[in-house]
Design a protein around this nucleic acid. Sequence first.
RNA 1: GGGGGCAUAGCUCAGCUGGUUAGAGCGCCUGCCUUACAAGCAGGAUGUCCGCGGUUCGAAUCCGUGUGCCCCCACCA
Length: 888
Amino acid sequence: MIELDPVYDPKKYESKWWNAWMKGGYFHAPVDKSKKPFTILMPPPNVTSQLHMGHGTLYTVQDILVRWRRMQGFNALWLPGTDHAGIATQMMVEKAILAEEGKTRQQLGRAEFDKRLWAWKEKYGGMITDQFRRMGFSCDWDREAFTMDPGLSKAVRAIFVDLFRAGLIYRGERLVNWDPALKTAISDDELEMKEITGALYHIKYPLADDPETTITVATTRPETMLGDTAVAVHPEDERYLHLIGKKIKLPLVGREIPIIADDYVKSEFGTGAVKITPAHDPNDFEIGKRHKLPFINVMNPDATMADNVPERFRGMDRFVARKEVIKALKELDLYEKDEPTRHAVPHSERSKAVVEPRLSLQWFVKMQELAGPAIEVAQTGKLKFYPDAWKKTYLHWLENIQDWCISRQLWWGHRIPIWYCADCEGVTTGLEDPSTCEHCGSTKIKQDDDVLDTWFSSWLWPISPFGWPEETEDLKYFYPTDVLVTASEIIFLWVARMVVVGLKTRGEVPFKDVYIGATVCDKQGRKFSKTLGNGIDPLEVIEKHGTDAVRFTGTAQAPLGGRIRMEVTDFESGARFVNKIWNASRFLLKYVDPKKPLRKLDAEKLTLPEKWLLEDLASKTEQINRCLEQYRVNEAVELMYHLIWGSFCDWGLEVAKETLNGTDEAAREQTTSVLVYVLEGIMRLASPVMPFVTEEIWNHLPVHPQWARGPSLVVTKYPDAAQLMRFPEAAADWASFQDLVTGIRSIRSQAGIPPKDALDAFVHTSTGSLKTLFETEGGLVRRLAGLKSLVVRTGDGGSKGPALVYVGKGFEAYVPAEGIMDVAKEVKRLSADVSRVEKIVAGLQAKLGNESFVARAPEDVIVTTRAQLDNMATQLSSLKKNLASLQG
RNA sequence: GGGGGCAUAGCUCAGCUGGUUAGAGCGCCUGCCUUACAAGCAGGAUGUCCGCGGUUCGAAUCCGUGUGCCCCCACCA
């Protein structure tokens, strides 16, 4: 007898097995050319972020895939790491320092601030990886990477230099998205458009030579008028034709600006006349370039008004200035009116500040040319999306790609490897820091102060941790990786860019498949977010239910794509399941003598329930492997659930109880051999999902001659249906057997007969094989259905006295119920059944009566339909006969 | 303004390439403390598969359309 603890205590076993796995080094994947690699790149979480169940689920999916492939014999690598997350991290550290010491980063100085950043990274980066360990993630911790590690930084530098030298990185003065709170440029992809109600202000601009005549412009941003350098109208707008070419004297400023004509202006919008502020609006910027207008920047980096505006507005915040400008215009009687309008305003994703288009000198990557190959691989199927619909999103972005602004006015990140020369116009770059200007040889050179966008290092994730730009063994062996599992919101920011750079540097996609997981929301359907505080903390749930329960529940309800609504109580079902597995194993092991070797299974000697159980193990194994191959993880998990609970526990163990408790030694040996064999298979199947509880149980299992074992379950061979025993005919017999047992249970339960009352029953069947089956398994039927006798007869007999009847497929089961039967209730039940079956029969008859069906449907469908009709018709007549006898 | 997705039992959702008597978990009802598990066992109820058209021998499944939600993209001041 092998004893397990009465209760599975997750805490007790989780740390034990985690340590054992680490000690065994099972998750470390060195290059091994004798094995095929299977690689997943972990999307590196930001060092600042705390994980919620959304990530938890997505990462568990990856872990399941990696563990499954590892057990299949692949050299499985799950590469973990974290991202320095430039803006996000700097923001948090700045905030913390301000709160604790009342200092700004400028007051601390760049070097000191840098130290604080690294200290922060050490602290929080560690917290995240701790969470990962608690989740049981089987990453190769020896390879843990950070985007600012020396090696990865070298890769950033190398790609910058490459692209710069290829003319794909350039510096330009352009209107960028400026975050006035963080005082840095941000890329288009870091914007959040928010629909807000603003106002469309109508302002009168007087002509320079005729102040009595005015032209009214409409704007949502009156404060920018201080930087206006033109007024534009549509070239064919008859209302304004006569004014084109004339000058306006800009109110409040006094500058004379032209009235120009441009197609961009929509006559029907507003007044049909637009003020043009090239330095503060993207469209105006374009018009400004077309018409060679001056660009007047009227704001400081923090979005206060600059010194080039009239004194009255200087230093004012842009929103205060807006009101003040309106006030001033009213004083001049140049303010006409305002009307409310809904419009989309770009906000900074990080600081939430309203983004200010700002004219500044920034570094850009030319994306169009680079995007070409990335588009092609998606079109040709070298890159596949699961679900496929995301391909469109990916392509749409790449096909409309804009140049990527990569410079950030931050301190946390990779410093731009560009040196400016004090003596000439040229810039110098290189893999090593230069000491002289490569154009004029001057030593007076100074490095750019700015850093690179975080994503400029993240996009190298498929190559940089493997040592690129060196042609390392790692790189050759692991690249391209197999599948990327991530969330839809970073398809542009990250996925597409990795494909771009992967193709550019390696000429091959960085991963063949992209799995986009479901968005995890709360019960109200709101996305988990830090600001809402509605996320579920994995550690909290683990504390309560254990890691395996959390992993099971999370992935059982995580289909591809889509959205799942999750709440804390959902995890109870996982806990129940783990408990069930534990108890079932504990029960079985009580009957196992560790000193007695288990038997090899002899197909000739196996009983029907044993054959069926083995067949079920094999067929579920086949399905589980197929589901995992297609990334249908939730379906695989569900199959495991039914195999364990529905098949192994509810039937396998229930059927075996008598033998296990009986005196027939040989039978007991055989049964325990079969059950341990199946349990071994189950533990292997479930290990990727529930690694801890399965490992603990597995280590108590006696060795079965038909299962070769590894040193730990996590590196023991995953079941392969092709190598398992199959008994397809047993499955059919078993279905009839179950039909009979559940049929009798059902009628007796519905009739309100207490479970303790042992009943007599008899079965009629005209099918020879069923008669044999029921006779052979009669004892089992009696026990499972609570009978004291079961008589099997041929032909359709009917009952002599009052009896409850169950009409199954190919048989009728009767339970004589003299005196206890409520005839009216029975009549009602049978009548309902009759009408139910009648409908089915009618449907099938109509189908087969339809000539086109018979003519056009495939042969096998017709055969099946005929068989169905036969079956149902027999059932129907049997039901009718019994109903009649009840009524007569 | 474009693009995509979703609508299936009271709730959360499965249902892969069209052919099932449409499923699971939770919840609900009935009966059981049957010595693995009451975090359990047995049984049960509940669905015009969002509406309307169409394709097809056959549609929850494919197409169109309407309605209702959700997401992404977008420079109409």
